[in-house]
């Protein structure tokens, strides 16, 4: 089960993911239409892409007054029947990650659909900050890093 995993340190905030997303998904070339948003944390010098997490029990699904948000039974993506959206924007508040995005053109709310399995933002990310990978693989990777640190520390402490 692959999802978009963010490597915060690698993101330089170029914004290509937003532009690519707006081009593929809205036919526009402007970050306002993107479903992935880069949060700029200027005081820390950080740029963090934020995108739909495809929760198992999505809060947005509960809040949708038109019941148009659903979990795809095969892929477990959180998807929408956008043509029924009346633009009440309740899901925007329900989403803790601000990943439900207001589309000002069609006056509906949209979210990332992972481009059906090949997310274009990941394909075009020049720095490798966005990775499309299995979530447990991501945990494995992090665990390896943490363990590597420990071994490094241990070898320093005991051999010297």
């Amino acid at each position: 089960m692959k999802r978009i995993v963010v490597n915060t340190e690698a993101c330089d905030g170029c914004g290509i993911c937003q532009l690519v997303c707006s081009a593929y998904k809205a036919g526009q070339w402007h970050p306002a239409f993107a479903r992935i948003k880069i949060k700029q944390l200027q005081e820390f010098g950080l740029n963090v892409p934020v995108v739909c997490m495809h929760c198992t029990y999505p809060p947005c699904e509960i809040f949708c007054v038109m019941n148009l948000i659903y979990k795809d039974p095969d892929t477990a993506y959180t998807l929408r029947n956008v043509e029924r959206c009346i633009g009440c924007r309740a899901c925007e508040i329900a989403c803790p990650f601000s990943a439900a995005v207001w589309d000002p053109l069609n006056e509906v709310v949209v979210n990332c659909d992972l481009c059906g399995g090949t997310p274009e933002c990941v394909n075009h990310c020049p720095t490798g900050a966005l990775i499309f990978m299995d979530i447990s693989e991501a945990a494995d990777k992090k665990r390896r890093e943490a363990a590597g640190l420990r071994i490094l520390e241990a070898s320093r402490g005991f051999s010297e």
């Binding site: 915060t8 949060k39 944390l41 990943a99």
Partner: peptide, 9 residues
Amino acid sequence: ISTMAWYMD
């Protein structure tokens, strides 16, 4: 904050 950038809003 780097793991919860959405909090910044």
